[in-house]
Design a protein around this nucleic acid. Structure first.
Lengths: 306, 306
DNA sequence: GAAAAAATGTTGCATATCGCACACAACGGT
DNA sequence: ACCGTTGTGTGCGATATGCAACATTTTTTC
């Protein structure tokens, strides 16, 4: 079996070249901030390839990559260090793997900040779901945490979602039923959007929905990704009660697309008490505020303890 | 940030206990075949927890787990060895990560055998898709390979699928458009099934569809998972040409649910020429047979070379 | 075209991990 | 109560990895 593969290594390389070329067309700015006049193609390309490999198998080894790229292990090690510095990969002894969870690329870049806060918010929100409930869960990194906690706790509920990672996460528990919405797949969020999605959502009626957002202020909830606002509104319209999961970094700001008024949501789950104008508006709108108990979360302890 | 986490390690543990308990209710038979009168709870539970951890973060380290479980590293090492022997995890120096691809649990158990063959089949099938094409892709581990190669090659096509991992894989390329079908989520396959799925599929017309199956024989194509047969038929009905992706292990067998006649498929992509009755039937039905060039595949070379 | 800067390769050593052998403890069957 | 089985811990030499300093090559810049 071993030499089997070794014989075909050449073919593999050829394929990889093609892919790398195709990929190169829409290069990500990997080393943007620090060096402004950077780099020959080599380094960049190699690092892109590392990320590419990492999408295909969850773990790559330094020695393998070094051999494959025809460079020394030190070079690969340096690449790893740079990439892990940007949070694009997670280092491990002898290799590297995909960042914390996101098999979902789009999330990766941003999902490092406030990870702990989001986990706490997700955990608190999960407590709101009782066995037997039917809920809708919006896409987003905070709501994904909710999904993970639901799965972790094994809550026997029915979940309707437009997010693929959320469907997968909740489904893993085996205890929950998951209904996936149709629509156009948006890679950056690993969720579906569009008219089909909305039409489908409107077939259901649920007791609760959990939504995320880009911003919340006294004037209401808003979202930067335009297609998402409509989805959130559709979910709101079909739920007896709506819960907004949002961290304090988004207080007092406003996004491009308006989602709804504060009065339309039943509760806000966050990591710190809102203050000032927003607090007043929330009280005025009769929105209950749930404060998440600080950082705790499955999957984080391991990396933190190391 | 570090001590931050360390302070809450206790909470994490408590949470993990709960989850482990919940999980224990539907324990998988980890060491079923070899030892019939096995084991105290300890080992089993520990190994389940390892798998649980692995779902939450893509890589766990031996030292961490040893400390967390309060056992020696040797013990964890033995667990790793056992689990990797069953293909449930992939070993790495200093730790372990999720098996080859499947962030998708159900796939895991079976997706080791014939992995290379499936990759070859997927690669061959990917060559059938031209830029601009619109295709449907059925769920399954072989068709997932097709999706990965499409993404890897960056083919600019439109894909309609009922499989979440396929949607994610194809979407990653950024070059393709992906339309996801609605329906009831089936965790073991990470795909959706049901009436909604079928109804949705029937809204489209495509040039090609790629389907997998549990078995193929002279009397036709069949599938063991009942809900899937209907999906495959729906896709067949909406495609100008159908391609069956199937490895030689499934030749000459029959599954519970009948999918279609051989005459309904345009081509069969496989890893070895069919023989005897099946070959005759294929010729008779005018089915073109495409033989996949032997093992090659992204993501595999790394693990094989090690 | 030469100097400067960046990237990469090389070396040596500290450390971590591996794999094995053996010893001990816990449990189950007779 | 005995003994065999199984799971676990400990110690050790071999190997792999990490890390830092320095040499070398390549690229950039003027």
């Amino acid at each position: 079996m071993q030499h089997f593969f070794l014989q075909s290594v050449v073919n593999v390389h050829t394929l990889r070249e093609q892919a790398a070329a195709a990929f190169g067309g829409r290069q990500v700015q990997l080393d943007a901030p620090e060096q402004d006049a950077p780099a020959r193609m080599r380094k960049k390309e190699r690092r892109e390839r590392i990320l590419l490999e990492l999408r295909l198998s969850p773990h790559v080894r330094i020695a393998d990559l070094a051999r494959r790229f025809g460079v020394s292990t030190e070079t690969v090690r340096r690449d790893f260090e740079a990439l892990s510095g940007k949070g694009l990969i997670a280092r491990a002894h002898g290799g590297a793997s995909a960042p914390p969870h996101s098999q979902y690329p789009g999330f990766a870049e941003r999902s490092l900040d406030r990870q702990a806060e989001r986990a706490a918010i997700g955990e608190s929100a999960a407590a709101l779901v009782a066995p037997g409930d039917t809920v809708m869960i919006d896409s987003g990194s905070t709501t994904l945490e909710l999904a993970r906690f639901l799965a972790y706790a094994g809550t026997a509920c029915t979940v309707i979602t437009n997010s693929l990672p959320i469907a997968t996460a909740v489904g893993q528990s085996g205890a929950a039923e998951v209904i996936v919405c149709p629509g156009d797949f948006l890679p950056s969020e690993a969720a579906v959007i569009g008219a089909d999605t909305i039409e489908y959502i409107e077939r259901f009626n649920v007791s609760r929905c959990f939504i995320g957002a880009s911003a919340v202020s006294a004037s209401g909830v808003s979202e930067t990704v335009r297609g998402f606002a409509a989805i959130k509104r559709a979910m709101l319209g079909r739920s007896a009660a709506a819960h907004l999961l949002i961290d304090r970094a988004k207080f007092g700001r406003a996004g491009l697309a308006r989602v709804c008024d504060l009065s339309e949501i039943a509760s806000l789950v966050t990591d710190r008490s809102p203050e000032g104008e927003l607090a007043a508006a929330l009280t005025g709108a009769g929105v209950e505020v749930t404060l998440a108990i600080q950082p705790t979360g499955p999957g984080r302890a391991a990396s933190a303890a190391s």
